[in-house]
């Protein structure tokens, strides 16, 4: 099957408009101010996000959506990743596929719940909620079932401090029976995996950009550090990992669009994008030297968010198993 992994003119328009908006209104820089953490900045521009058409972008018009496709959502997700936009936005995009797209397009918000522990899940699941304080709904995606809850269905709600302090975390318990909506099957879970992969590919790319910019500017021994091969080659490897993440995510997306979704290809995308984001974030810290170890640079933000997204609805061992697949 021959796929065009470059963007069409219309897709480029989506990339430019969303990318441009986010770079202008929710730039990564904003996270240097604590006041902008935990989706506070996103909530301030929520009307503009809805006007951009993010919520319901890939949902059919007959179901209250914009009528574009998963491809456009994947493009948006990459831009969200590049600016470390709150997972609240991604969760609301996913909720629009599950619930009433029209309501989310009109400003309703949803947040991700993700199981605290791994293993088999019973009727009651202990979950982490991500940036959920201003959302009406909670989305829980399991490999074989997608569920939507009212926020009021949450029990034992307790705030917790975590590694990525820019995202608000709470622990809570969810009961399957309390779901407002529950859809069997893996379709939505896998679509969300592609969106998360794309976010991670965006982080991998951003880490590369950040390292390249710093390496071109910081001078030691009388020349920019990017002229030293150890640094230059590290940047080249970052570019390769970012490209691998992007290409595999787009390929698995294009397959899904062509009605031949491939669970193993999607798992590959998540693995490559997750590894790419974490490895690039680490390398970026190294390129920044002492500065990279501090809150004075932005490098640490990428590492923390990369880890958070990697463990959102998944884990590496499970991905590896899916890639190997079942006996033919």
């Amino acid at each position: 099957m021959i796929l065009d992994l470059m963007l069409s003119d219309e897709q480029e328009l989506v990339q430019d408009s969303t990318g441009g908006f986010l770079a202008d209104r929710l730039p990564l820089e904003r996270l240097r101010e604590e006041a902008n953490w935990q989706a506070d900045a996103e909530i301030l521009v929520w009307d503009e996000l809805t006007e951009l058409g993010l919520f319901g972008l890939g949902v059919e018009e007959s179901r209250g959506g914009i009528g574009m496709s998963l491809a456009e959502e994947v493009i948006v997700a990459q831009a969200l990743g590049e600016q470390l936009v709150s997972p609240l936005v991604l969760a609301t995009m996913v909720a629009a596929h599950l619930g009433d797209a029209g309501e989310y397009a009109a400003g309703r918000r949803a947040s991700f719940a993700t199981p605290v522990r791994r293993g088999k899940y019973g009727e009651r699941i202990e979950v982490h909620l991500l940036d959920s304080k201003a959302s009406e709904d909670i989305v829980l995606l399991l490999p074989d079932r997608a569920m939507l809850f009212d926020r009021s269905a949450l029990a034992d709600l307790t705030p917790v401090a975590t590694m990525d302090e820019t995202v608000g975390f709470e622990r809570a318990t969810l009961d399957h029976a309390a779901a407002r909506l529950s859809v069997e099957g893996s379709r939505l879970f896998e679509q969300a995996e592609l969106l998360i992969s794309s976010c991670l590919a965006g982080i991998a790319q951003q880490a590369c950009n950040m390292a390249v910019a710093y390496a071109g500017m910081r001078e030691q021994f009388g020349q920019p550090i990017g002229a030293f091969q150890a640094v230059k080659h590290s940047c080249a490897e970052m570019a390769r990992r970012a490209e691998a993440a992007l290409c595999q995510t787009r390929l698995a997306t294009a397959q899904s669009l062509a009605d031949t979704p491939d669970s193993s290809a999607i798992a590959c995308a998540r693995l490559l994008a997750g590894d790419g984001a974490i490895e690039n974030a680490k390398a970026n810290i190294q390129v920044h030297g002492g500065m990279g170890f501090t809150f004075e640079a932005n490098a640490h933000l990428l590492l923390k968010r990369a880890h958070l997204l990697v463990s959102l609805n998944g884990n590496r061992a499970q991905l590896l198993q899916r890639i190997i697949g079942e006996e033919e």
């Binding site: 992994l5 595999q248 190997i324």
Partner: peptide, 27 residues
């Protein structure tokens, strides 16, 4: 199994990267 899966993912990425290269070459 883990090592095989990692190799498979990297082979998949190689093919995806080549698909991208083909798409670029068309332009």
């Amino acid at each position: 199994a883990g090592q095989l899966a990692r190799l498979k993912a990297d082979v998949a990425a190689l093919q995806a990267m080549t698909s991208m290269a083909i798409a670029r070459n068309m332009r």
